[in-house]
Amino acid sequence: MPLVVKDFTWDQNDTTVFVTVPLKGVKANKVDIFSSEEYLKVSYPPYIFECLLEAPVDDETSTAQVGNGAVLFKLKKKDPAQWSNLQSEQAADKDVMRQKRQEAIETAHTRSEEATKKKAEQKRLDEKYTINEIMNMEAAERQRIEDLKESERKKATEELEKWKDEQRHLAEEEKARLLQERKAAEEAKRAEQKVVKRSKKKGNIFDDVAQGISTRESGHIEISFTPRVFPTPIRESQTPLEEEWLKKQAEAARVIEIADKDLSEEEKNPLWLRDKGNSFFQAGNYKAAVNVYSHAIRLNSKLPALYSNRSACHLKLRNFFKCIDDCSKALELLTPPVPQNANSRCKALVRRGTAFCELEMYIEGLQDYESALKLQPNGEQLQADADRIRQIIQGSTES
């Protein structure tokens, strides 16, 4: 049975009540304090202090400090006045005391629930504000890019019009020159005809000269083109990047010799294993395809197609984190970024974006879809999926 503390002290003025409860050698970290508008309680086993106040106090502005071997309450009176006693006359009634204690506990519980709800509401508002700010920043960045594109478009249009004017002017000059040459040729022809007519009258003095003139010999010109691995013309090509890509592909395609007598020659070839995994995938046997791709990766870890194809299997099997890892590895190997691997990079971005969305990481998913749209700007399905993700993000923000 706890021991009731009776050697407490108190003091007051018109607005404040000071109550000091001795701790009797008990450490401060073992003291339990509870207070409300009409009830005080200090528990530090085996001692307990309870007080039913004579008048209500403002619990919001009142304080309790533990130190120097005592608990000091500083209670703000709701109605300024002098109290005749600290405890109410009803404190002797155990039923009243029990009722006041229960009311104080329920009031404190209600206040705690309200504070928790308020904190959760504030957190939701902060998250909503953060998402709105992120979307505003993204919208501002998109607007900046659109303005930059529009500026470049206007500049290109002006340069094109200027070039057209120059070409038109050159064409007019060329036309005038051709007309002048034609006119001069016609005048020379008319003059020659006059000479021929005069020569016929005097005798054909040009026959011997005409017989000595030889005709121009026919011939042909051979044109050779620089051999190109890629179909694009060399003036539009990124030659160093393409050569680096070809070198990496050649190194990745090299078959690694493995001393394992249990494996056939085909089972040691990563390219054969890739085709085998593709056949399993088309048949819907995704787990078998994952095993085949994984074995091929152990043989050669530099082929991006192995990681990209295995990510498609993981996506079908709803192994989203593994899908994200394989897509990221494929994108690392699909470097340097050249037109020849743009389609593979686009597939990896779309699969990783889909996995992010399945994990409800819509902002990361939207970023991958927008990167894929840069590689395939005319993809209607890609654009529709990106718009749907934006609607999901905006809907979650508004809710």
Rank of each mutant, 00 (worst) to 15 (best):
T116S: 15
M137K: 15
A91Y: 01
R124M: 05
R124H: 04
A70L: 11
R98D: 01
T116G: 15
E127D: 00
L125F: 11
R98V: 13
K123R: 03
V96A: 00
E161N: 11
A81V: 04
Y44H: 13
R144I: 03
M137Q: 15
F73K: 02
V66R: 09
V66E: 05
E54Q: 07
R111N: 12
A140G: 03
M97E: 13
D95C: 01
E150D: 11
A55V: 07
E161G: 08
N132I: 08
I105L: 12
A55G: 00
P80F: 11
L40Q: 03
L53C: 05
I131M: 10
T63S: 09
Q87E: 15
D58S: 10
R142S: 14
E106L: 00
T63Q: 04
M97D: 13
A91S: 07
E127Q: 00
D58E: 13
E54L: 09
V71P: 11
A28I: 06
C51Q: 05
D59M: 11
N136K: 14
E127R: 05
A120H: 05
R98T: 12
M97N: 06
M97K: 05
G69H: 03
E106T: 04
M137S: 14
E60F: 04
L52P: 10
V71W: 08
A104L: 03
F73C: 00
T110D: 13
D126M: 13
K119R: 07
K78F: 00
N68F: 07
D126T: 05
I134Q: 13
E103I: 02
E152S: 09
Q102L: 14
I48M: 12
F49A: 03
I134Y: 10
K94E: 09
I134L: 15
N132D: 13
L86I: 05
K100D: 07
A108K: 00
Q87P: 08
E50L: 08
G67A: 02
R101F: 07
T107S: 14
Q90E: 12
D95P: 06
N136C: 12
F49D: 00
K100C: 10
E54D: 14
E138T: 06
V66I: 06
V96M: 04
K123N: 08
L53G: 00
K117I: 10
E133I: 01
E114Y: 13
Q102I: 14
Y129G: 12
K119P: 07
K76D: 02
K155I: 11
Q99R: 09
L72W: 05
K41G: 14
K118M: 14
D95S: 01
A120K: 04
L148D: 09
Q87S: 15
E54C: 06
Q143N: 15
A108D: 01
